[in-house]
Amino acid sequence: MDQQKANVLLEAKDLKVDFILDEGTVRAVNNVSLTVKRGKTLGMIGESGCGKSVTAQSILRVVPSPPGRIVGGSILLYAMNGDASVDIASLDPKGKAIREIRGREISMIFQEPMTSFSPVHTVGNQIGEALILHRRFSSEKARQESISALARVGIPKPEQRVDEYPYQLSGGMRQRAMIAMALSCSPRLLIADEPTTALDVTIQAQILELLRKLQDEEGMAMLIITHNLGIVAEMAEDVVVMYFGYAVEYGDVNQIFEAPLHPYTRCLWDAIPSIDKKSDRELTTIKGNVPDPFSEFAGCPFFERCPEAMPERCELSPPPLVEVVAGHRVRCFLYEVKANG
């Protein structure tokens, strides 16, 4: 058990984030627990609006506030060696402690490489910024370092690109520059929020390849957020499945892909189009729609769409989190029965 603990880099426990809006309260993240292991990749999947980005934003404490607020839980970031940890969830989001973590311990890349850069500052200026800040580099040294960072992510003619503006780069280039920027201070965790959604398929593959290569070189951990099950299968060692702000299933990639437990995960799997399925049946979709973000549920939020729903039971009280096999946790009543024997 201690051995296992030493491998943990970041651990969210019962994280809760609310958005208090005029129209009501959106419980964007509900009691989410997840673990990112050192040097390993955690994939996060789930439909649009299920709270993936907000979970990621909470880890860096950049949830837009107001209206967003962390209302419960903890996010423990463990030190390089040993048990010492900081609870990110309890830090002042404007304070020095979290700023020291941002960009140095944990960095983030985003879906939209265009809007993620300031249009009026050069690429080099924006990449070098973290180095000047965290490493106290001179601006000349930061520029040199930016050039090698650009070279490392495979941007040709980096000494020229470094002085260009973001709009002068193509989409794929920009995402590479974004990665160079995030990795400039060799963080221990890289959060990638749909890093390839805005790119075309060939570029997607290149970017993922690059991320994997850099992960090997740097030994950093990653949290990859995506809609794309293929990306998860390919990149991740562990997977967390989100539904309506809940982490409904967490396990390693083999467990999740070979023995999915939660009915929602199974539905997701069934919805993947495949060549052999095409012959005999139509593309399966999950019945019903994602619930309105303002809705409140006494029981399981997936109840109405769930093919294995147990009336009464699932509707009335929130489902428990059950560890079915070691390291494989699911939030569902179906397994409570089995756990109780």
Binding site: V62, M108, S116, S118
Partner: peptide, 10 residues
Amino acid sequence: QYVITARTKG
């Protein structure tokens, strides 16, 4: 978005 990017740099 670029404001959030800058913030995540620290």
